[in-house]
Simulated assay, not measured.
Amino acid sequence: MISTLRVDPANTEQARAWDGQEGAYWAEHADRYDRAIRAHRPHLLAAAGMSATDQVLDIGCGTGQTTRDAALRASGGRALGVDLSAAMLRVARQRAAAEGLHNAEFVQADAQVHPFPAAAFDVAVSRTGTMFFADPVAAFRNIAGALRPGGRLVQLVWQAPADNEWFLSFTRALAAGRSLPTPSPGAPGPFGLADPDRVRAILKTAGFTDIELEPHSEAMWFGEDADDAERFILGMLGWMLDGLDDAGRRRAIDDLSATLTAHETAGGVHYASATWTIRATRP
């Protein structure tokens, strides 16, 4: 529960969501989330360049796919995954144990304030887990302190909403013609690190050097067919229907069904997506 977790007060709402209903939904659908972003996985792992003896920190590890990848590559080292969600960490521990990965560990923690051992890690990685910090400079400064001199930070984050067809399609459908408020640029959320100039400024202020961003575009998978994808998307974004009357709800669901059907292929429902792989070094 949140009461046992040290959280920066500014991250309280994020902790409430991820250590609550949102995290529970991700834990329940771990395989689906991992499959959705699978095409981006090689980019993150290639950029991280983990060696057999590396000590690896996985930030916002969720159900642990990247932590397990790190444990396999750093077979003579270790991989530590941290996340706010107790439910997702339970899944992560179960899967690491089932795979016999005794060098994979998991801790419930807010990486913005967690007291990591100083200079203990060779590389810190994150698969779409670093965009939610309320104070990203403080968070990345804390992470920098956990890296040895010369240690690497490698992140996979979303590019801007305009470059992510999946986000625009789902939110436009579920808006049902409403003009919904949009988060301020740089606000904590999926697109909090979408702006390259902002990313460079944050990481430089936090003490990192050699900051590089590499763009990637891949297809994301959301279900075996339109009906399967619709159930998943409504479970994830159904809150967007709040406030709609019956006619509005029908319109939103019909619009969602239409876009999912239009993106249905023999291999499932796919949408275009775009990420940045961000590399930086602790001097």
Score class of each variant (00 low, 15 high):
P136S: 09
G238I: 00
R16T: 04
R35P: 06
G189E: 01
V107A: 09
I253T: 15
S273G: 15
T12K: 13
D227H: 13
K204N: 14
D228P: 09
G267V: 10
F222A: 03
R73T: 08
G150I: 11
G60D: 04
G81A: 13
D210L: 06
E230Y: 10
G267T: 13
F133P: 04
A272E: 07
D195F: 03
A262M: 11
A134T: 08
A118K: 14
P183L: 05
S273K: 06
R73A: 15
Y271S: 02
G23T: 10
G81D: 07
W26E: 00
T63V: 11
L180R: 04
P183M: 02
D135G: 02
E105G: 14
R78I: 12
A229V: 08
G207V: 09
D135E: 11
A27Q: 09
S257V: 01
D254S: 15
W158Y: 05
Q108P: 10
Q21I: 00
A274H: 14
K204R: 15
L153Y: 05
D242H: 10
P149G: 04
G151L: 02
L89V: 05
E264Q: 14
S75R: 14
H216W: 10
V154N: 01
G150S: 07
T275L: 13
D31V: 03
A74L: 04
D69K: 01
D34P: 05
E212P: 04
D255W: 02
G76D: 15
A229W: 11
A47I: 03
P149R: 14
G76E: 11
L244C: 14
Y25C: 02
T66A: 14
D254Y: 07
P181V: 01
P283K: 11
G186F: 02
G268D: 11
T182K: 10
S184R: 07
A206D: 01
D58W: 09
N103P: 06
F167H: 13
A280I: 08
E22M: 00
Q94M: 09
D58K: 06
T209E: 15
G60L: 00
P215Q: 06
L234Y: 12
L84D: 08
A92N: 01
F167M: 04
D255F: 07
L89N: 07
L203T: 09
V56M: 08
R251D: 11
T130F: 02
L168Y: 08
G268L: 12
A48L: 07
A124Y: 05
